[in-house]
Design a protein around this nucleic acid. Structure first.
Lengths: 143, 143
DNA sequence: ATGCAAATGCAAATCGTTTGCAACAAAAAA
DNA sequence: TTTTTTGTTGCAAACGATTTGCATTTGCAT
């Protein structure tokens, strides 16, 4: 068994199991998204991929992102105005608190809220695939 | 004083006060967005506007939406994948559940979640000014 | 190794949105 | 009210992000 050097999940095996072909471009893209900390858009992923294999096309990046998204390997974030940005999923989910004054982004997580969301969705007849929660706040000055 | 027939806020006066010209297209668009319950996108607003005045252009709709957004009259929602959708602001706060298959947007509100958010923010040392919660789900097929 | 379905690269198409510009209309000035 | 000023419009063309058609190549089961 070939053990991969990253300590993480073996996505390739995962995808293979789902009947998805592991091609050279896909392997490269997969590596890029699973090794990055930030939230690159398709073009940025393409730019990084080209450094590894000059032939990779932007179309393939887009196609692969869609594939990985459907398979749950990555998550897509759609910001107003700009391109979609992607994030390696499978890490622990978190939400964001944005400091409106400084622009700082604080990550947090609340199981209670997650649970409530599921409840609400169920009541409305839906299953939640994912969600986005952003709190916009100001640092409280202790009176 | 010309009293308008809608029982609501007089946006025209508001905008005038802000030094914004009230033109025929703007008046029509304003009426459409303030009278609808759903979350139309620019093209849908355009479609409705054309019924009132055949000459109105899609560009003007876009320009007006940006204007109204900047002025706080409407709110823009950038849901994943699709076009921006608009909503008349100033109503009671609510969150959104987006049907990933149809694009339908369902409004909901949960005081519990609102309260939890405040709690979390307080723990992190913040006061929440506003927030955005979007659930992306798929309609549950009753087994 | 071989065959075939699936994936690729490329260019062209598509979608949502913005922009340049000449004609036009709203508010200000006369 | 007419004129002037200045912002707004409609149109078409441009744009950025993404998707697609198609001929070629590739993974991978046999």
């Amino acid at each position: 068994m070939t053990e991969h050097t990253t300590g993480r999940v073996d996505h390739e095996a995962d995808l293979r199991k789902a009947g998805i072909r592991i091609t050279r471009p896909r392997r490269i893209i997969l590596r890029i998204v699973s090794e990055t900390d930030d939230h690159p858009d398709a073009y940025e992923i393409f730019r990084r991929a080209v450094k590894v294999d000059k032939n990779i096309s932007l179309s393939t990046v887009y196609r692969t992102m869609k594939l990985l998204e459907e398979h749950g390997t990555i998550q897509r974030h759609a910001f107003a105005g700009g391109p979609s940005r992607f994030e390696h999923a499978g890490e622990e989910h978190h939400d964001h608190l944005i400091d409106v004054e400084t622009g700082d982004v604080i990550e947090f997580r609340s199981d209670k809220i997650e649970k409530l969301q599921d409840e609400i969705a169920r009541e409305l007849g839906y299953d939640i695939l994912h969600h986005k929660l952003e709190l916009y706040g100001r640092k409280r000055r202790s009176a």
